[in-house]
Design a binder for these strands. Structure first.
Lengths: 214, 214
DNA sequence: ACATGTGAACTGCTTCACAGCG
DNA sequence: CGCTGTGAAGCAGTTCACATGT
């Protein structure tokens, strides 16, 4: 039973849960029955206290003196992360990044199914693509009713991103994974996660440039 | 003159600086001479106090009653972020993501130049690719001496990531942008930024699954 | 004896609010 | 008078340390 959690959980916590799950699936496959917060912490690059705190937000499913039962923890984490169901994903922007993501097996494997790919470039529309024909973005709004898409991956150039995001929202999609290097301004009931690779590279160059000074 | 900063600057701050820069380049192109923290905050999705605090870590280059001079701020931010020079980047892993990144124009545009692409798959080695022939990863260590690469983009499967990262470090590279969904354990003088798209999608599915409860 | 679960202390980022200055 | 620059206050996430349970 998904214990109702009123508390707002930090993004950082959820990201760690996702990492824990990945490791647990791995060690579970090797037949390990139980795992301590200490071991899990080492795998996930954090501390045992952090692991226990993260898990404690959702209940107490560890056994004192022993650790956490791996199979149970795996299924609880799946449930917590919302992976108990399949999510329908549309990819908007059939450029290089969109292309790579549409074919990325890691998505499918965790229950994210790409159901359509969109672009506004007439040269691309209609081309076949890893089992999906690229559709005209103008069709998105009408399509989504039948597709029942939950999540859109936004992989269009920055200049087009805001406008395109608004189309996505108009289509009734409430979750956006944004690869465009801009801050989207959308209604607050839309959940947006940004992956800004350029910014990430610049954090890296900042750190490298200032490395001597430390 | 780059005022020496002893203070450790938060990643979140640096990421915002990168966003500010992107917006400033845009409005600067439109000829805007000066910008207030308030305006910049709206573009970057934050608050004016946050903008002023972020910038104040590096000096005070605003004019009271007026705002910040755009061209000057652009060049200061470039300098701060380490974009005053060109960074040599190698891409390790010639799969879909590696492929997309190798061709991503946003990198080049900001001073990140892809100088080589590596893989361990014999079928891929030697193939030509957007001006780069894919090289054998076994050559990485010897190549880097002549290439003088600064940053590696790690885009290999999770199972190979740790091992590959160690090769990269052995090659003398100190900055890694990690796309593999695992936590790398490396010497602490190596700067690692992780982009975990699977985790990001799961934060999204977590939020969507728990949306009703809020 | 061992490892969890958790209040309390701590650390650090963000927001506030206002003095300072063009 | 407007907007910056910045100490101080507020808040959130992390770490500590220990009581609790097996």
């Amino acid at each position: 039973m998904a214990r109702a959690t009123n508390r707002r959980i930090a993004d950082s916590t959820v990201r760690r849960l996702s990492l824990y799950l990945r490791y647990l699936e791995e060690v579970g496959g090797r037949g390990l029955a139980t795992i301590s917060s200490e071991t899990l912490a080492k795998l996930g690059g954090t501390t045992s206290a952090q692991v226990r705190k993260d898990l404690s937000f959702f209940g107490s499913f560890g056994k004192r003196g022993l650790g956490y039962p791996v199979p149970e923890l795996v299924s609880r984490l799946r449930e917590i992360l919302g992976l108990g169901r399949e999510w329908q994903v549309v990819i908007v922007g059939a450029g290089k990044i969109g292309s790579a993501l549409a074919q990325y097996s890691g998505f499918r494997h965790r229950g994210f199914r790409v159901v359509a790919v969109y672009d506004n470039n007439p040269a691309k529309i209609g081309t076949q693509w890893d089992g999906h024909s690229v559709r005209d973005i103008a069709q998105l709004v009408s399509d989504v009713t039948s597709l029942r898409a939950d999540i859109a991956v936004l992989a269009v150039p920055g200049a087009a991103a805001q406008e395109t995001a608004e189309v996505i929202v108009r289509a009734g999609i409430h979750g956006i994974l944004n690869f465009a290097p801009i801050q989207l301004r959308l209604p607050e009931d839309v959940i947006v996660r940004a992956v800004n690779m350029a910014a990430e590279l610049e954090v890296l160059s900042y750190a490298l440039a200032h490395r001597a000074e430390r």
